[in-house]
């Protein structure tokens, strides 16, 4: 009887001495059959299976190499797309600054804050109206009387 299982397996009913003796006889038969395996059995099995043992890892290595190449290509592609995207954004930002657009216009989405936030939209409208008012005041200041300098002598300044 298998001593390992005697300790670890819960048998429904304990074996009677007769059945235990029979199990021991079966163990003996099995041991005898294992010992009677033909000489060189493992060698012959080895030679039959060695080819697939050697072939399959090579295939696996090829699969691994192909997989690595695909991964590297994907990383390169993503990096390239990222670099191009960042450089375009930077160029766009520089262009906006260069064309004297307001910072607010530069950072706002194309359709404006109004489209996604009504509160922000109102605040922005107030700021714009104030800016417009200020701008018109500045315009009017410069255009008040273009001759006022003419009327002022250098000495009066």
């Amino acid at each position: 009887m298998n001593p390992h299982d005697q300790h670890h397996d819960a048998r429904p009913d304990p074996l009677t001495p007769e059945l235990s003796a029979l199990a021991a006889a079966l163990d003996d038969l099995g041991r005898s059959d294992r010992a009677a395996a033909p000489p060189g059995l493992a060698d012959r099995v080895y030679f039959r299976t060695a080819a697939s043992l050697r072939a399959q890892p090579a295939r696996a290595e090829r699969r691994l190499a192909i997989g690595s190449f695909v991964r590297i290509a994907a990383v390169l592609a993503l990096t390239t797309v990222g670099v191009i995207g960042v450089s375009r954004l930077a160029r766009q930002h520089n262009t906006l600054v260069a064309t004297d657009m307001s910072v607010l216009d530069a950072v706002l989405p194309a359709d404006g804050v109004e489209s996604w936030n009504p509160i922000a939209s109102n605040a922005l409208a107030d700021v714009r109206s104030e800016l417009d008012a200020l701008e018109s005041e500045l315009d009017s200041f410069w255009s008040l009387d273009s001759n006022w300098l003419d009327d002022t002598s250098e000495g009066s300044l």
Binding site: D33, R34, A37, L41, A42, T49, L53, Q56, P57
Partner: peptide, 27 residues
Amino acid sequence: LAATGDDRAWRSILDRYAPRVFAMARS
């Protein structure tokens, strides 16, 4: 090890299990 193509590991597995499989088939 055997799964990576290691001959000695595969041989150890065969030494260990081939007689047991043989005995079962033989019975």
